[in-house]
């Protein structure tokens, strides 16, 4: 039971990170119908920036906020300068452009900060770690029903719940949210009722990248270092989460992310003998494949009726 609880919370906190990336993907997909392949790398760049701010002596919270602002600008700029001009041609071209952005940002990270892990533990005798958002020392845990649960895991899970609630309010009860939903539903009509569609799309990409930045920083905090390969797997799980929940459903993205995190931890925990660490990946994707076969638009996605 203790073990189960521990794995559950670990799974939820890992899943929370996936959920943040998935949320970003869904926000972009709803607005423009594109899959942003660079979502993870945008987050990674921001995570590097936050590390750099930390090196310059800026406290964690302002550093994080600055990182999210940078994320917002990267996202918005990508939409305006790169995605919009190409999107008139074909959705495929946009996909390729996001792959280009993905490669470019990844290279930029290694060009600026080098290929090795940061902060490098070799400097000095004291082991330095990536600034964690929440207390993440080995003795920072609470005991619930006999299970030792890390405080940082709980905090990250709660943070994602708060973000989700916040987004829910923005989506459903603000003018910006209304505009975003209207654009997602019918961009042509949105223009005709006087919504500035281009602005809405720009802001959507910005918000998506800012949320991703939060995910990137939180994840780097969990595993205590940052390197250029950090976010690619997270992006893959995030997109898997979005697939599972349905690419047009923000709630689905969160549930999908949490599900994948928990399934993964449970599988690794209970069936380690048979599945092993390497096939952990396969299990979650198998789950998704089965779900997609039953519901081709994900668990909470809406199926579009096609007209000829």
């Amino acid at each position: 039971m203790e073990l189960f609880l521990q794995r559950l919370v670990d799974g939820l906190s890992e899943g929370s990170i996936y959920a943040l990336i998935a949320l970003g993907l869904v926000i972009i997909f709803r607005g423009t119908g594109h899959l942003n392949f660079a979502q993870g790398e945008m987050a990674l760049f921001c995570a590097y920036c936050v590390y750099q701010f930390g090196e310059w002596g800026i406290p964690m919270i302002p550093a994080l906020l600055m990182g999210m602002v940078i994320g917002f600008f990267i996202g918005a700029l990508t939409e305006v300068a790169l995605v919009r001009p190409v999107s008139k041609r074909s959705p495929f071209a946009v996909f390729i452009v996001t792959i280009g952005v993905f490669q470019f940002l990844n290279w930029l990270d290694s060009a600026i900060w080098g290929g090795q892990q940061l902060p490098s533990s070799a400097i000095g005798s004291k082991q330095r770690t990536y600034p964690s958002l929440f207390p993440n020392d080995p003795d920072d845990f609470v005991t619930v029903f006999g299970a030792a649960i890390k405080i940082s895991s709980l905090c990250i899970f709660c943070m994602v719940l708060v973000i989700t609630a916040l987004l829910f309010v923005v989506f459903n009860y603000t003018k910006l949210g209304l505009a975003m939903r209207a654009v997602a539903s019918n961009a042509d009509s949105a223009k005709l009722v006087g919504i500035k569609v281009s602005q809405v799309l720009m802001v959507s990409w910005g918000i998506a990248a800012a949320i991703g930045a939060l995910g990137g920083v939180a994840f780097a905090g969990i595993i205590t270092t940052v390197n250029t390969g950090l976010m690619f797997t997270v992006f893959l799980y995030g997109s898997a989460a979005a697939t599972l929940g349905g690419f047009d459903s923000p709630g689905g993205a969160v549930i999908g992310g949490l599900t994948i995190g928990v399934v993964q931890n449970m599988v690794a925990g209970y069936a380690d003998e048979w599945v092993g660490t390497s096939m952990k990946v396969a299990v979650s994707f198998l789950v998704i494949l089965v779900v997609l076969l039953v519901r081709p638009s994900g668990l909470f996605g809406t199926a579009k009726v096609e007209r000829v």
Binding site: S185, S189, L192, V193, G194, T302
Partner: peptide, 26 residues
Amino acid sequence: VAQVPQGRGTFPELSVDDNMHAGAYP
């Protein structure tokens, strides 16, 4: 100047109320 688009260009995923609110966007 308001336009009623061809082919009932409503926002199909939004509720009727939200459609009306979207109309009041400007």
